[in-house]
Every structure is written in structure tokens, then in C-alpha cells.
Amino acid sequence: MTIDRNMIWQETKDYFNITLGLMLYTFGFTVFLLPYQIVTGGIAGIGAIIFYATKFPVQWTFFIINALLIVAALKELGIKFLTKTIYATVVITVMLDLAQKVVEQPDGTFYKLMGEGNDFMSLIIGCMLTGTALAIVFLNNGSTGGTDIIAAVVNKHFNVSLGKGLIMVDLVIISSCLAIDTFGEFPQRCQMVVFGLCTMVIECTMIDYVMNVQRQSVQFMIFSKDYKKIAEAITRKTDHTLTILDGHGWYTGKEMKVICLLAKKRESVLIFRLIKMIDPRAFVSQSSVIGVYGEGFDPIKVKIKKNKEHEQELQQQQQDNTTAPARTATAATRK
């Protein structure tokens, strides 16, 4: 049995980055959100609401609900994805427990790093940290569990970003504050909901921003007389396929070849370096693209409508394609 070292290295890298993301999430949630009784979305938000109302530890609410969701989503997401989710759930449960002990004061309250009256500023900083942390976890094929699992299921089947998927679930969680009397009078509960909506928007915006920056793709148009050497170097170093287009210089009147290449933005420096090493005089155009779908990039997530009318249209097209050669042959015979 051969051991794939690249796979082992990739898995090790994923778990290392997931751990860093969980540490960042724990820091942002425990230091900036929990001491100011700011309600967030997700299972952490449910745990926070229960903690504010009953003092039941956040980490244990987080662990219990995640365990139930993981069992329910095992068939849908697969064991490989959920293995990292189980790891993240256990690690973040331990981290939340340790972090709360660090920030807890002798009187049982939490130390407020930003001071009194700076609830909204603490909200902004905390959500920027937790949103970035969740994006790091997602980008390394992991999940912190909870509503992330629900959002991942939605993202798997529909063209809905993870941020938007979390928004739909978090709206229900945050709005539940209005029905809990222990949070004070109705105006105070409304304020908690408004703050919760702000956390949701900031956190989900950070998730989409960080993930889109990492996934952003660009298109290269490379004009060079050494196009063969450049094409070979790019395919060898990046494992990308490319297309050679036929070009015609208007001013010179000469025929030339143009390399068309789609790549990740983070690969731009490497591609420019390869081009410059082979042909410093090459003319290169780089442009951002809205989306790239297919092998090596994002999958196409739209569903094909399967109804009777669509099937009839396909059958009619097949019949037309079949009878067209016969009609052509008949016309030629008549001539």
C-alpha cells in the first residue's frame, strides 16, 4: 500500500489552518462579544442566548447541538468533511471553556477589553475576527459545525454562497431574543436584536469577502513569439490547461499565436515570473473574471429543469437532427 505524501501534507496543512481559525474565532467571540452580551447567529448564538438567560455554559450547548447535527448530516456531506467538523467541534468546545476561564473575573463577570459603553465597537471587531476565522476554516475544507453544516448543505446543492446561507438561518436565531423576558424590557430586547443583525451582516460579509479573495480568478492573454515555451512552462508549473488562439497583427500584418489562460489570482505572480523568464518582451493582458466554472475551478450548481415540456423539446430537437440529413439527401437527389 503506497502512501500519498502530497495527500498527507495537504491534510496536515488543513488541520493546522483549521486550528488557527478556531483559535481566532474563540478569541473574537470570548473577548469581544460574550462580555458585552452581544447575540450572534449560529449555534454559538444559541449558546450565548441560553447562557445569558440561564448561565448554562456556552461550550456545552455548542457541543450538544453540534453532535446532533453531525449525525443528521453524515450522509449528506460525507465522512471526510464531517471528520474535520468533529475535530473542530471538540477543539472549539475545549478552547471556549479555557478562554472563558481566562477572561472571567472573581465576581463571575467577564473582563471588558474595550471598556464600558463601547459595545458597538467591540461588536465590529469581534465579528470581523469571527467572520475571518470561519472563512479560514471553510477554505481548508472544514466547518465549525452548527449552522455552518446547514449552510454547507445548501451551498452543495444550490448556487447560494455560504454567507447568504448563514444569514437565512441566523435571522431566526437572533429574532428569538424578542420572546425571552429575562433580557429586560421590550426596547432592550429590540436593541439586542438590532445588534445581533449587525453581527450577522458583518460576519457574513467577512466570510464572503475572505473566501472570494482566495477564490478570485483572472484571465491572461499572452502575446509572444515564444508561446510554445511559455505554454509548456505554465502547464508544467501550475497544472493548468490553456488554449492557443490564432491572432493577426493589424499593424504588422503578421500571423501570431495568443495564449488564453484562466487561473487563480494567487497564481498571478508565478505566471508573470515564468513569462518574464522566457520572453521579457511579451505582451500580457490580465483581467478579473466574475466566475470560472468547470474542472479545477468552482462547480456549476444550477439545476436542470426536468419536466414534460423540456423532455418534449429535447425529443423534437433529436428528431430534427435525425431527419435533417435525410431531407438534404432528398433535395440533392431531386437536383
Rank of each mutant, 00 (worst) to 15 (best):
I304W: 00
T252S: 15
I173M: 08
G291P: 03
M7T: 10
V58K: 07
K156L: 01
L129D: 00
V31H: 10
L274K: 01
N141W: 11
M206Q: 04
L270H: 06
H157W: 02
R189Y: 04
N17H: 09
G28T: 02
K265T: 13
I271Y: 01
F272A: 09
K228N: 08
N6F: 14
V90S: 05
L82Q: 00
K257A: 10
M128Y: 06
N159W: 00
I136C: 01
M114V: 07
C190S: 07
A44F: 04
V154S: 10
A324R: 15
I65K: 07
T328R: 10
T144D: 02
G145M: 03
G21T: 01
R5E: 05
Q216F: 02
F81I: 10
G45W: 10
I167R: 13
Q214M: 15
S288N: 14
T12C: 12
G291R: 13
I125Y: 09
Q10R: 12
I278G: 05
G41Y: 07
P106K: 07
D226V: 11
L68K: 04
F283H: 11
M128H: 05
F220D: 04
L69S: 09
I173W: 10
T89D: 05
N159H: 02
L261H: 01
I86D: 07
Q100S: 02
K112P: 06
E203L: 14
A326K: 14
A331M: 07
R215I: 08
K265N: 13
G291V: 14
S224E: 04
K13P: 01
Q286A: 12
L242R: 03
I271M: 01
E104I: 15
C177V: 13
I290K: 11
A151G: 06
M7I: 12
L262V: 14
K84M: 04
G196Y: 12
L24P: 05
F62Q: 02
T330Q: 14
I271N: 02
G115D: 00
S268Q: 08
G126D: 04
G131D: 09
D298C: 08
Q10C: 10
G126H: 06
P187S: 08
I125D: 09
V193E: 00
G41C: 03
T333M: 12
V160P: 14
G21V: 01
T147A: 06
G163R: 04
I290Q: 09
D4P: 11
F183G: 01
L24S: 10
L129I: 15
K75V: 13
A331S: 11
K276P: 07
G142C: 04
T26S: 08
E104F: 13
I43D: 07
I300H: 06
D298Y: 13
C190L: 04
L262K: 10
I125R: 11
G145P: 08
R215S: 11
E309F: 09
Q315S: 06
N159P: 07
Q10T: 09
L139K: 11
K84A: 07
I173N: 05
